[in-house]
Simulated assay, not measured.
Amino acid sequence: MSQSPKKIRDEQTIKGLLEKMPPHVAESFNDEQLTHLFTILCSRSWGKHTIDLRGTFKIPLYKWRFYYVFLTGRNHRDLSRKEKELSLVTKGVVVSVFLLISTCMGILILYLLKSALGIDILPNFSLGIWSWFKSAFE
Rank of each mutant, 00 (worst) to 15 (best):
S28C: 02
K20G: 15
W130V: 15
K20W: 15
P5V: 07
W64T: 09
V95G: 09
S135M: 08
G106V: 10
R9D: 00
P22V: 00
S96K: 10
L122W: 15
T103D: 02
F137S: 04
C104G: 10
I51Q: 13
M1C: 13
L61T: 15
L99Y: 08
G128A: 01
A26N: 00
L34P: 06
L53W: 04
Q12N: 14
C42W: 01
L112D: 03
Q33E: 10
T72I: 11
E27H: 12
L86E: 14
D31Y: 02
S80V: 05
G118Q: 01
L41V: 05
S115R: 09
Q3D: 05
Q12I: 14
G16I: 05
Y68E: 02
I119T: 07
F38V: 00
P23W: 13
Y62I: 06
D52L: 14
S102R: 08
S45F: 05
S115I: 01
G128N: 01
E83S: 03
E32F: 14
L41M: 12
Y62Q: 06
G55L: 06
L41A: 01
L108T: 14
F66E: 11
E138Q: 14
T103F: 03
D52A: 03
L61E: 10
L88R: 12
S102V: 15
L37R: 01
S87T: 13
N30G: 05
E85L: 14
K58C: 05
T72R: 12
S126Q: 04
L34E: 04
Y67G: 13
W46G: 04
L113V: 11
S28K: 13
S45M: 11
P60S: 09
L17V: 04
W132Q: 09
V95W: 00
I8L: 01
E85A: 13
L41E: 00
H49I: 03
I51S: 07
T103K: 09
A136F: 01
P123Q: 02
F29C: 11
G73I: 05
G118L: 06
L86K: 14
P23R: 14
M21G: 02
E83R: 03
K134Q: 12
E11T: 11
S43A: 09
K82A: 12
E83I: 07
V93P: 06
W64F: 11
F38P: 00
K114E: 11
D52K: 03
Y111S: 13
I51L: 15
D52R: 01
L71G: 08
C42M: 13
K20P: 12
H36S: 09
R77M: 15
R74F: 14
K63G: 06
M105R: 00
S28A: 08
T103Y: 15
H24I: 13
V97C: 04
L122S: 03
F57H: 06
R81E: 15
R74P: 12
R74W: 11
S80M: 11
P60C: 01
D120T: 10
M105E: 00
H24Q: 06
E19S: 14
F66K: 12
S87W: 15
I119V: 05
L34R: 02
F29Q: 08
V97E: 11
F137G: 10
E83G: 08
W130E: 00
L113G: 08
E85W: 03
Q3N: 01
Y68P: 05
L37V: 05
W64L: 11
C42K: 15
